[in-house]
């Protein structure tokens, strides 16, 4: 009982904070709210007994990605996002599509409750790591190629001087 109350508090908090992220004019505030959102989501994971995911959420997202965002904001020197001027029709269209999608998801998830299959228990730490290096060995290796590719790509995109120019 207490557990589900905590779960709903965290869930509501994460939605609320996520909405606040996109409503901010100041980018720094946005990032701050984003880090709170991530902490709230990790709270959701903890109440669901997915301790590993919760810890990863804090370590990787709050610890790594948010810091990265802050660096980008400092480097690019973004201060304030100016609202893009759109006509009323595209605005209306975008809002309609989003609301429709939300309504559809809510309807579907409440109409057919997902019954989690019995064998889908969240694995223990050890089992998880064992799976990563046994069943999912190939994806694990491909992920390392992916990281290499992304590393090269970000260097290409970010560097100022064109190294390949002859002049």
């Amino acid at each position: 009982m207490i557990q589900s109350i905590i779960f709903y508090i965290f869930a509501a908090l994460s939605v609320l904070l996520a909405v606040l992220v996109i409503l901010q004019k100041n980018v720094m505030h946005s990032v701050l709210y984003l880090s709170f959102t991530i902490l709230a989501i990790s709270g959701v994971f903890f109440t669901l007994h997915a301790e590993f995911l919760g810890a990863v959420q804090i370590l990787v997202y709050a610890g790594g990605i948010i810091v990265l965002y802050l660096f980008v904001i400092i480097i690019v020197n973004l201060k304030e996002i100016k609202a893009e001027k759109r006509n009323i029709f595209p605005k209306f269209f975008i809002v309609c599509i989003s609301v429709l999608f939300l309504a559809e998801m809510i309807y579907i998830f409440f109409k057919n409750r997902i019954s989690v299959p019995a064998n889908a228990d969240f694995p223990e730490f050890e089992a998880l790591f064992e799976m990563l290096l046994s069943k999912y060995l190939i994806p694990f290796e491909i992920a390392s190629i992916l990281l290499l590719a992304v590393l090269i790509g970000s260097i290409i995109i970010a560097r100022r001087k064109l190294l390949h120019d002859s002049d």
């Binding site: 190939i138 491909i142 992916l146 992304v150 790509g153």
Partner: peptide, 18 residues
């Protein structure tokens, strides 16, 4: 398998943006 599909899909997707 969805996991091996998604990781390899992202590999060529991200490389095509680059």
């Amino acid at each position: 398998d969805f996991i091996s599909f998604y990781v390899s899909f992202e590999l060529f997707a991200i490389l095509s943006y680059i």
